[in-house]
Design a protein around this nucleic acid. Structure first.
Lengths: 151, 151
DNA sequence: ATTGCTGCAAAACGTTTGCACCTAT
DNA sequence: ATAGGTGCAAACGTTTTGCAGCAAT
């Protein structure tokens, strides 16, 4: 198994929260952590089905939420009515820039930005929990942009 | 009519873009600008129906997109699979903090944040278009929070 | 033995579409 | 006259739910 450390994290989480340890849950975890980039729950379901898994849609949807709860995945919304996930296991915090022409997603992290969510929360009388910051922009280089359109 | 200036903006936009000027479009505009706070397209449709409008769902959905195009409304996504709108007519740019316990939405604007979307876009080789910044946090004062839960 | 989890299908939800009729141009 | 908009209902894509059977505890 590739994801030894993640398996341990997930197992401990399930135990602590009194959820059952089932093979299906680890099967979804494995597929999710293997996925390169951002994916919708249904994308993952279809992928697993194509690989002859007998997993059900419901189990995929529910397990992804568990993986978010234990911080193995993070949840993203890029301005569509669609929930996307991405592995956050051993990855540093980052934000996203989305090209509105070609759909390319670039990850970045900005030093000036990082302290702001917590600072602003305190200023407004809240306890910071999480934030989302997405920039929508256009590739300056049109050729570049065309290239990614077909991807 | 309350929204004299907005009517003019919308009329000019429709004309420029060669869209037709119809009473239904202004009816939706009126209801949208009257709405206090953030609303989903369906909320607005139901509200209008309750006020005995004969508008159709399709017209409401399509017109809201036109109002976004001419900057009378802005579109928001607060981490659910639901598009929300809010009037941006004569309002200054702001971001949102959402309480994950009671759902209260607080608007803020932060001087350190404002220059970042454009700066980051340029640094990454993009032309800035728009951004979304949402903070998810908890009311520090539990009583406050309880109060808004019932709203 | 007892919950809780699974797969399945159906329902729910917000949103979009196809179409026949109507209306602004 | 004609392109485009409207209302309606049906379709859509994603997500959730109800339920009977199954498996982890």
């Amino acid at each position: 198994m590739k994801h030894k450390q993640a398996i341990e994290i997930f197992r401990i989480f399930l135990k602590n929260e009194k959820y059952r340890i089932t093979p299906e849950r680890f099967e979804v975890m494995d597929a999710a952590l293997d996925y390169d980039g951002h994916f919708g729950a249904d994308d993952l379901y279809v992928l697993m089905k194509n690989e002859n898994s007998s997993i059900s849609r419901a189990t995929v949807y529910k397990t992804l939420e568990l993986l978010v709860q234990c911080n193995l995945l993070s949840k993203r919304h890029f301005g569509e009515n669609l929930t996307r996930y991405e592995s956050s296991f051993k990855r540093k915090v980052h934000d996203h820039l989305i090209c509105i022409d070609c759909g390319r997603i670039v990850e970045f992290s900005d030093k000036q930005l990082s302290p702001l969510p917590d600072k602003i929360s305190r200023e407004l009388g809240f306890e910071f929990e999480s934030y989302s910051f997405n920039i929508f922009a256009r590739c300056s280089n049109p050729k570049n942009c065309e290239y990614f359109k077909d991807r």
